[in-house]
Design a protein around this nucleic acid. Sequence first.
DNA 1: TATCCGGGTTTGACTTATTCCAAATCGCCG
DNA 2: CGGCGATTTGGAATAAGTCAAACCCGGATA
Lengths: 154, 154
Amino acid sequence: MTGIATDMTATTDSRPYAKALERLKTVGLRPTRQRLALAKLLFDGDDRHVSAEQLHAEAVAADMRVSLATVYNTLHQFTSVGLLREVVVESGRAYFDTNTGNHHHFYHVDEGKLVDIDQSRLSVATLPEPPEGTSVDRVDVIIRLRNGQGSVQS
Amino acid sequence: MTGIATDMTATTDSRPYAKALERLKTVGLRPTRQRLALAKLLFDGDDRHVSAEQLHAEAVAADMRVSLATVYNTLHQFTSVGLLREVVVESGRAYFDTNTGNHHHFYHVDEGKLVDIDQSRLSVATLPEPPEGTSVDRVDVIIRLRNGQGSVQS
DNA sequence: TATCCGGGTTTGACTTATTCCAAATCGCCG
DNA sequence: CGGCGATTTGGAATAAGTCAAACCCGGATA
């Protein structure tokens, strides 16, 4: 952090963590070295779907010292403040989506890939009332895909 | 299996495995001792949501010798022939639903409980086309609930 | 500004739920 | 009764979550 630039949004300028720092401040998370590093990996660039292990591998590859446990912690913290959205596709497989807007997902079972569905292309028609004493936290729709032709069930 | 009754549907009669046997035959799964035992636990009685560990505990409690690995295998086999439906609610938590009809679920996050939503109360309005070369295997809708009041997001 | 302190963070080790695998066993056919 | 392939099984492997102890960030202090 020896830069003297005044720009505060660029990614490749002399203050590469300015954006990440800003983001953490606005959600009220203490900007630690690890959180800054992970925020940079997650939010610099386009929207993405990332697993904890993937992100940890990226961090290690970029010479950032972060433990896998911290990656899990951080992803969940980011999720609970609304910076990320968690998508559980299989019992041992969770993705974190940097797109937190209103949308749902295709999950390609044969390849383990997740793809966003634009909100304009899928909507839930009639929502049932939540049971007494509860409120809706989130509505997840996952359309599971397979290779080839097949019958459509709901 | 020493009964001489002719009825083929009763649960508590002298041929307690008749129904389970029938069910396995019709889906083309070899009726082994373990599969018969688990089918009986799963399908005798009302619809239910069960985890692998729960079912294994029940089997052990009922003096049926079945390994946990077999319970997992069997649940997945039953699922792939359409006898069960798998619902993944959290990364380390999967339920198997004996109700294979068209319906979706409430998941109560704070208690880990799953509740069916009748199909008449929830429907997906506009389904997007599956990408070229793929077909829809299944559409899962899970409404996550929390205790108390809260804002509704989609 | 340099140092201290307390609570928030990070971390490695451990536990849990699930899957994978190779070897032993079982069911079914002749 | 014998053989073969399907099934079962214990144990290892994997992804994820938990926990207590070490560590670090940032405000208070002087």
